[in-house]
Amino acid sequence: MILILGTSSYEQGTNPVLDWLIYLKADFIKLTIEDVFINFEDINVDINNQQLSYNNISLNESVNVVWYRHFMKPQQFVSSEDSKFYSKLNKELHSEVKFFTQFMYECLKDKKWVSSYPSIYLNKLTVLNHAEKYGIRVPSSKILNTKKHAAQFLEECTSESLIVKQFSDHSRGYYVDNDTSYFSFAKALKNDDIATLATSFFPTLFQEKIDTDYEIRVFYIDGQFYASAILCDAGYNTDDRKKIMSQSNIHHVAYELPEILKQQLTRLMNTIDLAMGAIDLIKSKSGKYYFLEVNPIGQYLYESEKCNLHIAKNIAEYLIKQDKKEVTLTPV
């Protein structure tokens, strides 16, 4: 059986895979935080024997593979109407969820996890180090908190600007205020911009801005690469691709990575214990490839549909294969 740890709401990286699993008659069950902590469906955890059951199904005996997908999505368990301590209570309840999830991983540690629970929350900065060890180029990067050091870093670089962005993978990146949504973007800073910074500020990730020909989005499934290049008629001139995705002069095309880069990325993903993830690369105008980051539960649907990569179907087939069941797969 395949156990999917997801969210109760529609999620663009999960639901298309569920559709394929149903179509392929796969044996699977989906479990969400809402099932356990809001709807109070039957969950039984034998701590002494590390046995876990859900609705009278022994997950230890039935499950062969676990697909982790947005299970720890933040929840509002208590509202301001329920208690004046709602903020503190929500933090404490979220901590309960975290400890429950960690122990669930211990109970099912002998199963095939896609990817392993600890790897889902890997450190982006550590990954950059690992990438360089395997010969993958990464932009020059520093965490700085003073205007002086930011200006010095720009002088050390060959480019005319730096990219500044968050370095935590736990940042949501968007914020909602009633009917208005706010997004955080990476931003390019030139000398004049750095001059306007405060003398000191919160520690921030600065990276050399690479003179980019195009960006490459890769979805990785255990040694298989589904890549697409983002091409712009007017040239790739942005500090964050989210700013240009809706423009009519942007094109997505299927892309074949060089074999040596595939080997390097495979070694990297094996080292950080990720069987699946969305990798961001750029190709510079000088023809060099640079690694930016990997998102363990990154999205793929937009690029897959634009380039006919059928990633959702490929994920479903991979999960079925890991479940070691004989299933006749129907070609698209």
Results as ranks from 00 to 15, higher is better:
109 K>Q: 08
110 D>F: 05
110 D>N: 13
110 D>W: 08
110 D>L: 05
111 K>I: 06
111 K>L: 09
112 K>E: 12
113 W>T: 02
113 W>C: 05
113 W>F: 07
114 V>Y: 09
114 V>I: 04
114 V>R: 12
115 S>M: 02
115 S>D: 11
116 S>P: 07
117 Y>M: 09
117 Y>S: 09
118 P>R: 09
118 P>E: 03
118 P>N: 06
119 S>L: 07
119 S>H: 05
119 S>V: 04
120 I>W: 02
120 I>L: 13
120 I>Q: 06
121 Y>Q: 11
122 L>F: 00
123 N>H: 07
123 N>F: 01
123 N>A: 02
124 K>L: 01
124 K>R: 05
124 K>M: 03
125 L>Y: 13
125 L>D: 06
126 T>V: 15
126 T>S: 12
126 T>C: 14
127 V>A: 08
127 V>K: 02
127 V>G: 05
127 V>Y: 01
128 L>H: 01
128 L>V: 05
128 L>Y: 00
130 H>A: 13
130 H>S: 13
130 H>M: 14
131 A>K: 10
131 A>C: 04
131 A>Q: 04
131 A>E: 00
132 E>Q: 15
133 K>E: 14
133 K>I: 14
133 K>W: 11
133 K>H: 15
133 K>D: 14
134 Y>F: 12
136 I>D: 07
136 I>P: 03
137 R>I: 12
138 V>S: 10
138 V>R: 07
138 V>A: 12
139 P>F: 14
139 P>A: 13
139 P>C: 09
139 P>L: 12
139 P>S: 10
139 P>T: 14
